[in-house]
């Protein structure tokens, strides 16, 4: 069984969000980068768990990005995975990234492709579904549970106000979120081992992006909080009714 796990690099959750170049570029100043939490905590860890159950499983990680992403890729390899592939390019839009991953996936003949539910920077939630369409594979989104029995996967996906249990034969693309696995801290052996795991660099195929970010805006700052004393609970409720008009 061969698993491909998509790994994205994102700013840390506490990073200051600011823009430069006339609000056209994200300001990297002082920003720490992390593996996109959904990719790391859920997609990657679940793949590692599957390998722990069946040692013949092969896990490849894939990232679309420039050499500055290698540190993040090594971090992911410290958690698990046999080798990583980096498509050497600046990530364009979701269509561009998904095309590159689909190209690699086609060659690699993977049985299972795992992604996080979305990246925490561009919040696209779109790469998994796009890969599935490029490869004409089924796609199960927002998985909260993933089990495998032979070549049949049973996947619970979140829906509005509930959950749906799906059964699907491999190959399949699954986007993962909370519930699929538990975050793991890499151990010393993993970190040492990651240094010597293969990190293949391949050149991108020529694909045009379909969209382009023109500029960024920050939300207008809040007016400031209106405070009530604990004994003024009724006044607060009146304000919500008469002033804010939300109840």
């Amino acid at each position: 069984m061969k698993i491909l796990v998509c790994i994205s690099k994102t700013p840390d959750t506490t990073a200051k969000i600011a823009f430069t170049d006339n609000n056209t570029k994200f300001s990297e100043e002082g920003v720490q980068h992390i593996i996109n939490p959904y990719d790391e905590w859920y997609a990657l860890v679940r793949a590692v768990e599957l390998k722990e159950k069946d040692a013949s499983t092969i896990i490849h990680l894939i990232n679309v990005g420039d050499p500055s992403n290698d540190a993040i890729i090594r971090k992911a390899l410290a958690i698990g995975g046999d080798e990583a592939i980096r498509v050497n390019t600046t990530a364009g839009d979701d269509y561009y990234v998904a095309s590159q991953i689909a190209e690699i996936a086609k060659e690699g003949q993977y049985d299972l492709i795992l992604t996080g539910k979305e990246t925490i920077d561009y919040n696209g939630a779109s790469v998994g579904g796009m890969i599935a369409e490029f490869l004409q594979m089924p796609f199960i989104s927002f998985a909260t549970k993933f089990d495998l029995e032979g070549t049949t996967a049973t996947v619970t996906r979140e829906i509005e106000g509930g959950a749906e249990v799906n059964e699907v034969s491999l190959p399949v693309v699954v986007s993962c979120q909370q519930g699929v696995a538990e975050q793991r801290i890499p151990n010393m052996r993993g970190i040492m081992g990651a240094r010597t795991k293969p990190l293949k660099v391949v050149e991108p195929k020529d694909v045009a992006t379909l969209t382009e970010i023109q500029s960024f805006d920050l939300p207008a700052p809040k007016q400031g909080v209106k405070l009530f004393a604990p004994e003024q609970a009724e006044d607060l409720v009146k304000a919500l009714r008469d002033e804010a008009k939300v109840i």
Binding site: D94, G129, S141
Partner: peptide, 23 residues
């Protein structure tokens, strides 16, 4: 931009080769 919308829109975007904006 809910669970079903986010599951279909990326696929449709590729099928129609139509640029996608989520959210």
């Amino acid at each position: 931009n809910n669970f079903n919308g986010k599951a279909i829109a990326p696929r449709l975007s590729v099928r129609l080769k139509a640029g996608l904006v989520t959210g």
